[in-house]
């Protein structure tokens, strides 16, 4: 037991050093995915049949295949395309492929969340906004967004937490996030203390997830200020 604790204590700084990589992947992917997902949802709600079909197929594919397959596909495919077109990918960091893959995957899930938030909205409200003479942009900004954000945020948080867990898959293609770092340390030590290291990584992920939940629940509480029925009491509990 004492030996295990010593191992954990010895390698904790090295693991925490690679924490920014995980957070970086998480934040950038969520940001890109939110933008992409918005357009996907817009295409799926809209009337253009071509866009609708394309976005439906894309969303279905991204939801229907494992993240690891997508990650490996992108990891193999993009260098092929780039090198055929004269762009050298030799110096690229593997984190770029992880970012692309995670953002595309999350975009599909986010699109579904945005769409369900839009559907949950009462259509009378949009009609009322139109009858007051609001344009489409104004309707979106003043009516759809404030209510949609409040109802979509718990789901978005859940999805982001899933993504945070799934960023550990990036270790497969050689990104040195926390799990990748742990694997490297294990290999350097010829497998000594790998159980302790993996458990430590798990605990780090857990604490990170709790912090994200806490922040999200604070924001949800703020967004639902005018709606007492939707108030969150437990700040560390998942919702939705």
């Amino acid at each position: 037991m004492k030996k295990s604790l010593e191992i954990v204590w010895k390698y904790l700084p090295a693991l925490l050093e690679s924490l920014p990589t995980t957070l970086y992947m998480l934040v950038i992917s969520v940001f890109i995915a939110a933008i992409l997902g918005f357009f996907l949802a817009w295409a799926k709600i809209g009337k253009n049949p071509l866009l609708k079909g394309l976005s439906s197929v894309f969303i279905s594919f991204m939801r229907g295949t494992p993240m690891m397959v997508q990650l490996l596909l992108i990891f193999i495919w993009i260098p092929l395309i780039c090198n055929d077109n004269g762009i050298s990918t030799n110096t690229w960091d593997p984190i770029i492929y992880a970012l692309i893959s995670f953002s595309l995957n999350m975009a599909a899930f986010f699109a579904e969340i945005f769409r369900s938030a839009y559907i949950a909205l009462d259509y009378k409200q949009i009609e009322a906004a139109q009858s007051l003479g609001m344009g489409p942009l104004q309707t979106f900004r003043r009516v759809i967004l404030p209510q949609g954000a409040a109802s979509a945020l718990p789901n978005l948080t859940n999805m982001s937490l899933e993504l945070m867990k799934n960023t550990s898959i990036a270790a497969v293609i050689g990104v040195y996030d926390i799990l990748g770092k742990a694997q490297q340390l294990v290999k350097n030590n010829y497998g000594v203390g790998q159980l302790e290291l993996y458990i430590t990584v798990g605990v780090i992920f857990w604490i990170m997830g709790l912090l994200i939940l806490f922040v999200s629940n604070l924001v949800t509480r703020r967004l639902n200020k005018g709606n007492p029925a939707m108030q969150t009491k437990k700040l560390f509990a998942a919702k939705g």
Binding site: L161, K165, N166, S168, I169, A171, L179, Y198, V201, G202, F205, W206, I207, M208, G209, L210, F236, A237, A238
Partner: peptide
């Protein structure tokens, strides 16, 4: 919450 917060790969 602990079980939920750990990536499957680590399990």
């Amino acid at each position: 919450s602990f079980l939920k917060g750990i990536p499957i790969l680590i399990f």
